[in-house]
């Protein structure tokens, strides 16, 4: 039998929710362990090893220490996969990038601010090559499993490049705008099966923007539906402070 790929899991700046989500694979955990050997995972075990085939990395890079570690991980692993919003595009953490780092440190650490060096919260891909990404805050189990099975089978993983609206329409959901809610679905990258709108909730945009988004048009939609310009921009920034891509009109 072929030896199983050695898998390690790491976390940086984030809530570790994506990792917890992985531990919650009750129904599939044994199936997964059939195909991989987990060799390092701080949240679940004590072991540490020198090299791995696949590294799953959660969290954004936001301190000098993070930078050193992510380069180290990249050097030890064949495949690097960013897990969840923070690792993929900086996530919520990146909201701090809108202010000066000094102000941010002062708010968080007060007088001790000089003891805690900080950097803008950036995605892993700002520092190292990322082979695959799983979007979402937290990432969904379904997408994680799809990515994992594709890679293990040596196939091409599918990553949606369209909006949550697509999945909502495929599922024949009622649009939550009709209920007076303000939803980020029209401009947020799909892949979650429109989880929140399917349960009557609005999308907060946790999966980041679609590639080449028409941000101006989205801000207009938010304003038309009752948000102030300021609130509309904040809503856009919640998960997308680092997004620079724009649409071609």
């Amino acid at each position: 039998m072929k030896s199983k790929p050695r898998v390690a899991v790491f976390d940086f700046t984030g809530c570790e929710g994506c990792e917890l989500n992985k531990l919650n694979f009750e129904n599939h955990l044994l199936d997964i362990l059939d195909h991989i050997d987990i060799v390092e995972w701080r949240e679940a075990m004590d072991d540490q090893v020198a090299e791995y085939d696949i590294a799953f990395v959660e969290g954004s890079i936001s301190t000098p220490d993070c930078v050193e570690r992510i380069f180290d991980i990249r050097n030890r692993t064949k495949v690097l996969i960013a897990l969840g919003a923070c690792a993929v595009n900086g996530g919520m953490n990146a909201m701090k990038n809108k202010q000066s780092l000094d102000t941010v440190r002062e708010i968080v650490y007060g007088e001790d601010k000089d003891l805690f060096p900080t950097l803008p919260a950036l995605p892993l891909s700002s520092y190292v090559t990322v082979d695959y990404e799983v979007h979402g805050c937290p990432m969904t189990q379904k997408e994680f499993l799809q990515l994992l099975t594709s890679i293990l089978a040596g196939k091409k993983p599918v990553k949606p490049d369209y909006a949550v609206c697509v999945e909502c329409k495929l599922d024949e959901n009622e649009c939550v705008y009709g209920k007076g809610m303000i939803c980020m679905g029209p401009i947020t990258r799909a892949g979650c099966d429109a989880l929140c709108p399917s349960f009557g909730q609005y999308c907060i945009g946790c999966r980041g923007l679609v590639p080449h988004p028409n941000k101006e048009a989205m801000i207009n939609i938010l304003i038309e539906n009752g948000l102030s310009i300021d609130d509309a921009e904040k809503r856009m920034d919640l998960y997308n402070s680092n997004e620079k891509d724009v649409v071609l009109i």
Partner: peptide
């Protein structure tokens, strides 16, 4: 076409509905 494009987010809802 260009004018409408300023307003459109290209979400695909029109086609899918």
């Amino acid at each position: 076409w260009h004018e409408i494009a300023q307003k459109c987010v290209g979400c695909g809802t029109c086609n899918l509905a």
